[in-house]
Design a binder for these strands. Structure first.
Lengths: 158, 158
DNA sequence: TATTGTTATACTCTATAACTATA
DNA sequence: TATAGTTATAGAGTATAACAATA
């Protein structure tokens, strides 16, 4: 006998949290096939969109402290995906760029992103998917969320 | 100059992850006013819906190992919100129930849930909210997600 | 011997803050 | 003195697995 007050739990907020967590987990599993973590995938994407910025700029945008960002870049630099170039004229800073391998991996990542999107929306028609995107976009704007950035770029364990 | 391949990142999957993380954080902040964590709120809700089950039953449904669930119940029992009764006839098990204080707090939690829902959907009309719920519900079903349960009941830090 | 609940422990992730090098 | 990046470290949160009590 579920009590009457309990309707609020079946609302959009709960469904959003539930599906969001599910989407995040599924995405982490997919990018793991490319030996990437979600934060690494996020950085790959940022460097493809806007290259040449300083580490602090990217770190802030990804919502992580500079100290954590260092190890993130270290890993990807060792794999030959990202390149650090000393800043000009400020030689304290680094400017970050994708290598050719990084750009190639970004393309594979985009393909994975499309498959992820398609799988998650399998229950919806093309028109319904557009409706959903429109509603969610308006919600995100009203809630002052930055487009293309979310705080789910946290490390996940195996 | 964002590259053309990058469309997949603006899709429903990304918006879902972004808004889901936002909803989860906002919910955690709201229930903190009641001195509750999200897992505690989840347990409160479960005990109101289906009382008298064993700890393992609830733990599995909340998606946490029994060892973690023990400390969760400990805290709420000490606050006088939850009661452990020795199982009959199996005296190994406990049956869990809400106390009167627990039921009172559940009512306040429901009120918070409604406010949370309303705030999150502020950009949408009543009809649009219904549409959104319908689409998300179908997606959740197709993805085999259990109604009323999501893995976001993890401890959050202040 | 199997199961419920509990406790102990080791591990991962994280943020904080001290440190260096350039400015 | 201030800033970009780095390194070291301590703390929180977690799962794993050993344990106790009952079946």
């Amino acid at each position: 006998m579920p009590d009457r007050e309990d309707r609020s739990w079946g609302g959009a907020a709960f469904l959003l949290a539930q599906l969001g967590a599910h989407a995040t987990t599924a995405f982490a599993q997919r990018v793991a096939e490319l030996d990437l973590t979600p934060p690494q995938a996020g950085l790959l994407r940022m460097l493809a969109q806007v290259p040449g910025q300083s580490q602090q700029t990217y770190a802030e945008r990804l919502g992580m402290p500079p100290s954590r960002f260092v190890t993130l870049v270290d890993t990807m630099e060792q794999r030959g995906l990202v390149e650090r170039r000393r800043g000009e004229p400020d030689r304290r800073a680094y400017a970050l760029y994708l290598t050719d391998d990084g750009q190639e991996l970004k393309r594979r990542l985009d393909a994975i992103g499309r498959a992820h999107e398609d799988d998650l929306c399998a229950a919806l028609t093309t028109v319904e998917r557009a409706t959903l995107r429109e509603l969610l976009t308006r919600m995100a704007q009203q809630q002052n969320l930055t487009a293309g950035v979310h705080p789910g770029y946290r490390q996940r364990r195996g």
